[in-house]
């Protein structure tokens, strides 16, 4: 996993750095300002290492990853896991409960509604599945988790302005654009490519978008039914944490309209919209909650 790095000091007021890399089957891009080239290069290296570490931990397609080992063995025995994966699974379970079960990293299982798919043992730092055929997929969680980790890394390095885009669907902003009061992010119209369906202004905040993927596939599954959710509209969530935004956008997309407001109301400071894109470029936006 390599990365592309560029640095420009053409604008001496705001030297700007750019990083692009593939991680967790997505593209991570970051633009940040205020660092000279050597410091920025050093930070880029740290980002790369951090993403490599997460990839090693959470990639279920790699046979050697701890997550793959858990998927392989945890239905039969307790599997000891590292700090990061343990914390991630703790958070995932908390979010499952906090979203009425519409966010669940163990969706491809035979577990019934409201059933706990795994238990965590803090003493032994281990995980054990509660049933056979449980399979954990952190794909809907890892981008937000990674962005929060990057927020910490950037803050430690003293970077005050950055925009991070993980897979187009998860965005995190530090500070604002150097020539504006926010970072402006356009949500792409689903039917008319290149048209902005809705513009989001991020300042020290995050957003996440859920819907059909770029191939048009309904890739989000309703954990309660195991069926793909055939929603045409986008769900956009804005708030402080990229992780919470990602979890909520997935959960709200999967949840029926009647339950969305109640789920969102449990997350103070988070706002969600349902964005309907028409064939002729029209857009209808409804606040959720």
């Amino acid at each position: 996993m390599a990365f592309e790095f560029e640095h420009s000091a053409k604008n001496p007021l705001h030297p700007v750095s750019y990083l692009k890399m593939l991680a967790m089957h997505s593209r991570l891009e970051i633009v940040w300002t205020g660092q000279q080239e050597i410091s920025a290069q050093d930070l880029a290296q740290k980002i790369h290492e951090s993403m490599l570490s997460m990839e090693r931990e959470f990639n279920r397609f790699s046979e050697k990853s701890p997550l793959s080992v858990v998927n392989l063995k945890a239905s039969r025995e307790e599997v000891c896991i590292g700090e990061d994966l343990f914390m991630a699974l703790e958070l995932c379970e908390a979010f499952r409960r906090g979203t009425r079960g519409y966010f669940d990293v163990a969706t491809s299982t035979s577990c019934g509604r409201d059933m706990v798919s795994y238990t965590l043992n803090p003493k032994s730092h281990s995980v054990r599945f509660t049933a056979a055929e449980v399979n954990l997929d952190l794909g809907g969680f890892a981008k937000g988790f990674a962005l929060e980790r990057l927020r910490t890394l950037f803050t430690e390095q003293g970077v005050e302005r950055a925009l991070m885009n993980f897979g187009s669907s998860s965005i995190l902003a530090l500070g604002s654009h150097p020539y504006g009061e926010w970072w402006a992010v356009g949500v792409d119209h689903t039917k008319q490519h290149g048209i902005v369906a809705h513009e989001v202004h991020l300042r020290d905040g995050a957003m996440s978008v859920s819907g059909r993927n770029y191939k048009g596939e309904y890739h989000i599954v309703n954990p309660h039914t195991g069926a793909s959710v055939a929603g045409e509209d986008l769900i956009l969530v804005e708030g402080r944490s990229a992780l919470v935004c990602e979890v909520l956008s997935t959960a709200l997309y999967a949840a029926p309209k009647s339950e969305r407001g109640a789920i969102l109301s449990q997350y103070e400071g988070y706002h969600a919209k349902q964005i309907a894109c028409g064939e002729c470029g029209s857009v209808e936006i409804h606040e959720i909650g």
């Binding site: 420009s8 997505s26 897979g167 187009s168 669907s169 402006a184 356009g186 986008l234």
Partner: peptide, 29 residues
Amino acid sequence: KGSGMHQLVAQIESGVMSNSVFAGTSWAA
């Protein structure tokens, strides 16, 4: 070539701010 993110670099170099269309439901190559 590249996403609106990369265009941000050029904007900052020029001292301007612009909307960048790049958010969506998933990465579109």
